[in-house]
Design a binder for these strands. Structure first.
Lengths: 340, 340
DNA sequence: GAAACAAATGAAAACGTTTTCGTGTTAATA
DNA sequence: TATTAACACGAAAACGTTTTCATTTGTTTC
């Protein structure tokens, strides 16, 4: 690769010292107007741009933020990245994205790769496998090393760092309450297995909403899905076994699949059965009927996470106080639920 | 930030030279077994990891690949990133993602930011604005600088570099031909304005398919949409003005919107009107009826792009030969078209 | 004409590696 | 005993910056 011109080369060419060139380019008054102009003209001609790597080494910072997410083909995570990018870029930072693909090992490898000087701070959401194993040593390590870390969405209590989370329990509560208010009496829950922190919290919110509205919790109305790819089979079973007039699903896909099955079985939506989902992605908006859902405000999460991490990166002395920012969900009413 | 331990510190602590430490850690036979073990133990204890930035400066490479895309909340681009990530990671590279948000200026800024030593090569898809302006000086600059560049999907003939593209014209041809084969006589086209290269090519494919099947091109059946957000208004107009029994739309959203409007107007799908879209995203699979569409194989594109760029990065002497890899689309038959 | 000063420039260190090329010590050989 | 070879280690340069602290030159002042 042809290389960009360096200070050294310019210095040699113009027969001055490297320091003079450096100062001249940055317009230092220390250098005479004459040489300043000469150097600047030359630099411009040869399209000189300082080498970021050298500057990083000197300044001991990289102006990079590392982001590790479990999956990129996932609307929620991409919205978060968008938010991160926006803020990061406006403050002169680049974003290095790594995917764990929900694998613990890949998460660890990626973190180590980035932690060795490539970035100034981390923003991450841990993989399912990590949540299942409950092994967070890699996070603890970067924190101990003094590297700023912000966890979002899928977080852990074991790690002391800044966090941005969705108020999952409250969101679920909100959703179920909406179903109750619009007349549902028997509300089913389609959720994930418990080790997925958000699934667990949303299940909690569901139960709270029922209890507080004087509705008994019927475990037969709850299904916990492990294999997302084949969720339809599980949901079919739910329809076989029980009757209900409302469904709360912890993500878009479960909600859509349930709606599809309901319609195939001849139920009218929302008259016979109402549906609410979590996560306001593209599916909800374009489903038929359109799906009432909880917006998670991913962009906002990303923005806040980026602000937090940059704040920590740039703060003078290291403080050991950590914040947890909670993003409220908002209910987007569409056509899968009855109007009040 | 507490910093990681360096060779220098270890050297001082163990009272040997930096070079000895470096060699010992890397297990060089040049160093006695005794010191080797001593140093390695110490390094392990203090969790020594070489600083990537220093190594980058020394080696004059970063093991980073820069990716610039117009938009991340877009299924196709995320699949491409996934493919890039996969290959890049397996070869020891990180991926730095920057978004242009379809803005020319941001694209230029991002490129310059990354070109100053942060990355070893570029993979990119240009913004709409760039395509409209036809200003590719920033691309030309990095190419002239000798930095490997791979363009994908939205490419330009003006730039000499490796490219990975979808065979848009052929794909569109394939789609329209399928409509014809399943009995459609009057086929409408919902496309984008012409400066979007892929829109233009897909339009071409549509026209070719009609011509070659002896069907006259009726310009009234073609609408070119500029404002994607409000595509429904434009599509409504199409339904008002003309009659047709098939629709080919250049993306998922246009196809779904058209289907929605058709159903609202009482048409049966696919009996009265058939629909085919381009891009096999999540929407197509979950639409009702499910949408027949052209898979673009984004992951494969990403993989190929990554391979190409890494090949160029790692090749000994610079060659001036460039390849253009063409990815064939494949038709995914679903329920929005009739069976043959 | 010497002393003091300002202006312009340069040398060198530092950031953290890797690598080449000594150099000094010890052991083996003639 | 003198020569060589093997071994263990260290000094220094290089990557490209920035910055601090000289040093040189010319100018002013007494």
């Amino acid at each position: 690769m042809r290389r960009r011109i360096t200070l050294k080369q310019i210095a040699k060419e113009l027969d001055v010292s490297i320091s003079t060139v450096s100062k001249a380019i940055r317009g230092s008054k220390e250098i005479s107007l004459d040489t300043r102009q000469k150097v600047q003209a030359f630099a411009k001609l040869y399209n000189y741009k300082p080498n970021n790597i050298a500057i990083s080494l000197k300044n001991r910072n990289t102006k990079n933020i590392g982001v590790i997410i479990p999956e990129i083909v996932h609307h929620f995570f991409t919205t978060v990245i968008r938010g991160i990018e926006q803020v990061a870029n406006s403050k002169g930072y680049n974003v290095i994205v790594c995917l764990s693909n929900e694998s613990f090992d890949k998460e660890v490898i990626n973190m180590e790769m980035l932690a060795n000087g490539s970035i100034d701070g981390f923003i991450m959401s841990v993989s399912k496998e990590t949540q299942k194993k409950k092994d967070f040593h890699h996070l603890r390590e970067v924190v101990n090393q003094g590297m700023p870390l912000v966890m979002f969405d899928r977080v852990s209590d074991e790690i002391f760092c800044d966090k941005v989370i969705v108020d999952d329990a409250r969101g679920a509560y909100q959703a179920v309450e909406h179903l109750i208010k619009t007349g549902c009496k028997k509300i089913a829950l389609v959720t994930t297995v418990d080790y997925v922190s958000v699934g667990k919290l949303r299940t909690l919110g569901y139960k709270n909403a029922l209890s507080e509205n004087g509705i008994a919790i019927d475990e037969d109305l709850i299904i916990k899905i492990e294999d997302i790819e084949n969720c339809d089979k599980e949901i079919e079973k739910l329809f076989d076994q029980s009757q209900f007039d409302g469904v709360f699903a912890v993500n878009e896909l479960f909600a859509l699949t349930a709606m599809k099955i309901a319609r195939r079985r001849g139920f009218e939506i929302p008259d016979d059965i109402s549906f609410v989902g979590f996560t306001d992605g593209i599916l909800s908006k374009h489903a038929s009927p359109t799906l009432t859902t909880l917006a998670q405000h991913g962009i906002e999460m990303g923005e806040i996470a980026a602000k937090m991490v940059i704040e920590k990166i740039e703060e003078e002395e290291e403080e050991d106080s950590f914040r947890t920012e909670i993003i409220r969900t908002s209910l987007i009413e569409r056509d899968s639920t009855k109007k009040i």
